[in-house]
Design a binder for these strands. Structure first.
Lengths: 212, 212
DNA sequence: CCAAAAGTGTTGGCTCTACACCCATGA
DNA sequence: TCATGGGTGTAGAGCCAACACTTTTGG
């Protein structure tokens, strides 16, 4: 039997968060797990991941990427389930309808403070975070975690949050600009202080940075 | 149903080669495929890949790494098979017992001149080659493609062969040495000309290069 | 002594990092 | 006018790529 499990990330309030479902049945009852479930016969893996994610959260059209496949013989003592792990990204954790997952109620957790995870989902979490960090460094993947329009400060905060280290503002701006992934918009965001000009990603699909 | 398929690489005579099996049955008869087959219930994925590889080639103890999982609904019109692709590396293509695979007779092919491949194995080939190239750049993975002792020229030739581009000898030597992955042995290889001193990898397991 | 492969340094350009002050606005 | 976050430049160090000749051996 084949299952898919999806590590869904979002950033809010300066924290990286992931969506977990509390299991109600089985030997792992009371532990938390990434949303997922069995693949139907004839169903494409990506489609199964999207379907499960939609059933758990109401989301559709998210960024989605396959991570790794876990043997996972421990999930159920009698059935042998192979689990294909995915990573999904959304801009805003409030976009989903929480709590209507089949397997149980779900909610967001800070990645830094996750509860005990079922099966081998702790390994998935480590793997997903590593993948997200490295893709931030050499792709425009941040487009999937930010709204269409954002300020440079917001982009910088996203990087600092996910990478877990401070960013030098001037060097960061220079490097990002050199990558040529952003478009500067004509308008600005007005707030309590000096207005910040807005940017958007030139492409809303994954691009890798060419370093030649 | 879950299958594993393994892209086995070796370098010989200045060419990168991979081992393919000619299919005898089914709609893909006459096409070639990477050695593989179904995973048994309760069997770990890595173990299944090693078992299949052993059955096809007699090899054991090779370097082995999971690549990607393909939905592969096209393999058989009635059964839905999910295929986990692996990459394996060996030092010498002559180490295996050819032709005793269940699915048919196998032999080595130059990666640059592969016959028509069955299923989605062409995608696997592309993926495996990409992974091998990038790991050469930031790990000591070459240890799995070279004999225990080798000359610097042999290492250089390996890189040029796999990466498919010429290497500057002086820069290459400096970079490799800076990585600190090699041990210089006290003896040398004598041949028709000036003797070349021999090296071995300090570690025979995968190490990533730290770039701080 | 000749052919063939092994072995070795330097320079210029580029990139990266470290670092601090002025600017524009709302209150 | 002040508080707050937005926006900008430079110099030094380290890294990388380009490039050709000398050494050692066997025949």
């Amino acid at each position: 039997m084949v299952a898919v499990d999806t590590v869904l990330f979002a950033v809010a309030d300066g924290r990286l968060r992931t969506y977990l479902v509390e299991l109600q049945h089985g030997q792992a009852r009371g532990k938390w797990a990434f949303p997922g479930g069995l693949v139907k016969v004839g169903e494409l893996l990506d489609r199964a991941a999207r379907r499960q994610l939609h059933e758990s959260t109401g989301l559709s059209g998210t960024y989605l990427e396959q991570l790794f496949t876990f043997g996972d013989p421990s999930r159920d003592p009698r059935a042998h389930v192979v689990s294909v792990a995915y990573m999904a990204l959304i801009r805003d954790p409030n976009l989903l309808h929480s709590g209507n997952g089949k397997s149980g109620p779900g909610r967001w957790h800070e990645v830094a403070k996750m509860p005990p995870l079922a099966y081998d989902h702790a390994d998935m979490a480590v793997y997903a975070l590593k993948r997200l960090k490295s893709k931030l460094e050499y792709s425009n993947i941040a487009y999937a975690l930010l709204p269409k329009e954002f300020t440079f400060a917001e982009l910088e905060e996203l990087y600092a949050t996910v990478l877990g280290r401070p960013i030098d503002r001037r060097n960061f701006r220079r490097r990002i600009m050199a990558m040529g992934l952003l478009r500067r918009l004509s308008h600005a965001r007005r707030g309590a202080h000096r207005p910040a000009s807005l940017y958007s990603f030139a492409s809303q699909s994954l691009r890798f940075i060419e370093m030649l």
